[in-house]
Design a protein around this nucleic acid. Structure first.
Lengths: 167, 167
DNA sequence: GTGGACATGTAGCCTTGGCTACAAAATAAC
DNA sequence: GTTATTTTGTAGCCAAGGCTACATGTCCAC
């Protein structure tokens, strides 16, 4: 773009939607930061439930990262107050950690169900949900539940079959 | 293949889907890495179309980051071959950059439309889509398009009104 | 009860995406 | 044509999340 009256960027007056957009992007970035934490918490909860314990090595393998990476992440979980761990004794969740796990799991299930209801193959639904779930707001979540309900599919009654997420 | 009898930890018997899960997580992580790139490319395309030029400062403001951050990201876009930029002359997209922008925009629109069709308020749909879009696979995208089509809503015919995404 | 295999933890390095602060160039104003 | 303003660019810092390599602990098997 060549010469022009050169308004020197007319900004200053027109940041009405601009901020809204910036806010959205910022939100998405933040969500990304909590995504890891949520994944770890949910997995730990899974392991505690199914195997009775959550070992760093198991966590690392399931997540597809090195054990060192998992250990560093676990340190962060402790800092954030959602988990505890004694050296060589495995990882455990605090009350808030368990609550978070429950919320995350419910949300995950809901997202998968919606995707499947929309015609997405189960496998793809599961894979995409892994990334999508962290960006679904409460508002959207409610709409999802309502949609499933009205579509005839069970709205995953929170305590229902609890289809033991394979994951 | 070392030791083996060594079962250690009762888990072990149940790692059938373990690799699949790790793959999913890895995929989600990778997607996250391309998300930023996509956001920048799409925004640059928007700016080029609406303002005729894409300046680092504008990009930074729209994304809600400092100009320094935007410039570093732009450097990455150049490295990846989707954009070009001459000092003090703005940023431009390469052919592949434009193609990427088109794909990203179409996907974004589709995601928003689906969310709205599911009953999510427009504002929340737009906000959540910002994060969700980067995790929607081709398979899921196709299902979305089919769903919209069958629901009566226009399947956004790719070349249609091209509703000039406000964004 | 000791040796070796496996699990765990630590250190150091890389990359990315942010930031602030400072330097340099372009434009606008005078 | 200077001067002031604004935009652009550069440098240096930080935290997060990955990794490999190395060091230490545990525990099973013998």
């Amino acid at each position: 773009m060549p010469r022009k009256p050169l308004k020197r960027r007319g900004r200053g007056s027109d940041l009405p939607t601009e901020t809204a957009q910036a806010r959205r992007f910022g939100k998405a970035r933040t969500a990304q930061s909590t995504a890891l934490l949520e994944d770890y918490v949910e997995l730990i909860d899974d392991l505690l439930g199914s195997a009775g314990e959550a070992r760093p090595t198991d966590i690392a393998r399931r997540l597809g990262v090195s054990h060192a990476t998992a250990i560093k992440a676990i340190a962060r979980l402790k800092r954030e107050g959602v988990a505890t761990a004694r050296p060589y004794r495995g990882v455990f969740l605090t009350d808030s950690g368990r609550a978070l796990a429950a919320r995350v799991r419910a949300r995950h299930r809901l997202v998968v169900e919606v995707l499947v209801a929309l015609g997405v193959p189960a496998e793809a639904a599961e894979a995409d949900a892994e990334g999508i779930e962290h960006h679904v707001s409460e508002t959207t979540l409610k709409a999802f539940a309502k949609f499933l309900h009205e579509s005839g599919r069970l709205p995953s009654p929170a305590g229902g079959g609890a289809p033991k997420r394979t994951k």
